[in-house]
Design a protein around this nucleic acid. Sequence first.
DNA 1: TCTGCCATGTAAGTTGTTACATGATTAT
DNA 2: ATAATCATGTAACAACTTACATGGCAGA
Lengths: 181, 181
Amino acid sequence: MTLSHTILACLVNSPHSGYDLNKSFQESVGCFWQASQQQIYRELSKMEQKNWLTGEIVPQEGKPDKKLYHITDLGREELIRWLEEPTKMSPIREDLLVKLLAGYLLPREELIEKIERRKKVHQQQLKIYEQKQAEEFVNLTQLPKPKQFLYLTLLRGINIEKDWIDWCNQVLNLLKNDFNS
Amino acid sequence: MTLSHTILACLVNSPHSGYDLNKSFQESVGCFWQASQQQIYRELSKMEQKNWLTGEIVPQEGKPDKKLYHITDLGREELIRWLEEPTKMSPIREDLLVKLLAGYLLPREELIEKIERRKKVHQQQLKIYEQKQAEEFVNLTQLPKPKQFLYLTLLRGINIEKDWIDWCNQVLNLLKNDFNS
DNA sequence: TCTGCCATGTAAGTTGTTACATGATTAT
DNA sequence: ATAATCATGTAACAACTTACATGGCAGA
């Protein structure tokens, strides 16, 4: 159950509403942890019950009320306990690779198109990350700590995307030049 | 539900028992799809009910009977239908990155040790993959098709491991030299 | 004798996905 | 008018994890 710990990590510095968290998960956190809105809200309720968080209802003008969640001492203790735990590797489950495993059942052009489409997706994502890097992380050493550590995760995102693009190129080369149809 | 399709992809060429599949998932398939023994057996039952597979009980000497699963025409059709579908990106959920996000809450040495431990794991896995590459995939163009396509997935495994190692080095450098404790 | 391999499964609980539901405000 | 943004939730189902359970054979 690490979604709860990811949420704790987000709340350590500042309170967030479910809505805020959902946006974070789509933006910064999304490069290493994905969660849907429904998961987030359900998890927040559970965490409030466990007293890892307290919810504060904040009225707003012209907008519906929001519920700001603050981390409690218990929540912070739990986060630190978990941080110190040994870390397991996360499982990989990649549809595209399964399709490639059975790729000889598809017409060659169709397969190549699939890989090329995927390559484009990663190129786009890379662009987004690199833009962020250039905009938000200049003068890295002068930034506040939480921001510095966020940078390390962005770096991972950039590496992953570059790596995917490399692999796509390798595969496209093999499919086009070395594998006979 | 892609576990079933991964299993179909494994069974296209030759029948396997649940036990065989479990081993495949630990070895070759494991670099892009992980599944536990329990998941595999449960999925096989479901697939047999849907008539994607037929089970054949094979008595053995000195060993318990095994149940060999064969793909049916329906199963093959389903696989091809799925292969042609557009492919979504798989979600990433990486504990280590979450820990890094909150890394400023841990003593610096502890964090560095975590990253170094992880780096070793990836170095070991890379060694295994590269050994495989050298042993099973010489004369790539002369190998049978299914083996050629399996190679493309191994290539992905190798890339992933190298990429992790690179990232670990980048992070270790930053933590040791640029980030003040 | 104890570990590991062969071979299959059940049960309970936690996570993740998909679809549905509400309702006001702001911008085009 | 229509869509997008803000903001929160419920319900049902599918998938995954962890623990338990059996039982014979082979080798150190």
